[in-house]
């Protein structure tokens, strides 16, 4: 009888060990595998005017949709997590569909969303480049017909966040406030600045952090660190004047975000001072491409 028990326990433990090994292997595979499941192949960059597809993008007809293209290893996505929480919560309340696209396995993406307090709905694993997403985070809005009304890549400035939340809530007349593209801001090379622009009427904005500004800055540059533009720019700069942002000592990404920020605040004449005269290119997160 004892021998029978021992054999039984032996078999049960063996099966349990095999099951555990398989489970651990599966968990490790889920955590570290990154080969994405390609849902669709689109060569075009996602932009306003394009139409979401039910088969390829998971879009459902007849509802307004907000889509988020995120990644679990993207720092900017984590920075924006609170806004995504607000947006997805509002979407749930106001009957707006949410699509969440991640290149990582669904388990990892779901854990990331839950960890950051973002509702999990419409979560899919996709190859972001194959659906035309150029960088993370990307957020977009589409109307009932699936037509994309606005797409933003990178962290959103407060005005853009406010617009997206108002759009989700269906605030009357919000569409007219859809942040429009100001076109590519003018880039001024250092040579051109020194030769001709410097002597003209303008305000030079330096968006470096305070410590770096004190280490060295251009003459007459006004220092408003990038993360303080929201509360200070409108009170310390003159919107009607030509504003030149010194982009020679900060990343182009921050410079472009600062340009957008000022543009939305009513600064219509904003230029970027760059080291060369070639047009500015995207940094790691791209620029907004709203209507």
């Amino acid at each position: 009888m004892t021998s029978l028990w021992v054999r039984l326990v032996d078999k049960v433990t063996t099966i349990a060990i095999i099951a555990l090994v398989i489970l651990v292997g599966f968990l490790v595979y889920r955590r570290y595998s990154s080969s994405p499941e390609v849902l669709a192949v689109k060569t075009e960059e996602i932009r306003p005017g394009m139409v979401l597809s039910a088969r390829q993008d998971g879009w459902k007809k007849g509802h307004k949709t907000i889509f988020l293209a995120l990644s679990t290893d993207c720092v900017h996505c984590s920075n924006e997590a609170l806004f995504y929480k607000q947006a997805t919560d509002a979407a749930k309340r106001f009957g707006v569909d949410v699509l969440e696209w991640f290149p990582q396995p669904v388990g990892d993406s779901s854990a990331w969303l839950k960890r950051n307090g973002v509702s999990v709905s419409g979560l899919q694993r996709v190859s972001l480049s194959s659906i035309g997403v150029v960088g993370t985070p990307t957020i977009g809005i589409a109307d009932e017909t699936g037509t994309i009304k606005g797409v933003w890549t990178g962290e959103l400035i407060p005005r853009e966040q406010a617009f997206v939340l108002a759009w989700i809530r269906g605030v009357p007349g919000v569409e007219k406030d859809l942040p429009r593209s100001g076109g590519a801001p003018e880039s001024i090379s250092l040579d051109a600045y020194e030769l001709s622009v410097r002597s003209t009427r303008h305000q030079l904005l330096d968006i470096q952090v305070r410590d770096y500004y004190h280490l060295g800055h251009r003459q007459n540059a006004i220092n408003i660190p990038f993360d303080e533009l929201d509360s200070r720019a409108i009170h310390e700069l003159v919107p009607a004047e030509r504003t030149i942002i010194d982009c020679t000592n900060v990343s182009m990404r921050f410079c472009q975000l600062a340009t957008r920020d000022l543009y939305y605040r009513g600064f219509e004449n904003v230029s970027m001072l760059v080291k060369t005269s070639t047009p500015a290119t995207n940094g790691d997160a791209g620029t907004a491409r709203p209507n």
Binding site: R201, H202, Q203, L204, Y213, H217, N220, A221, I222, N223, I234, H235, E236, L237, V238, P239, A240, E241
Partner: peptide, 14 residues
Amino acid sequence: MGVPTAAQPKTGDN
């Protein structure tokens, strides 16, 4: 705070 409307833009070191 209000929005500055001064004709002369503010320049100078902080």
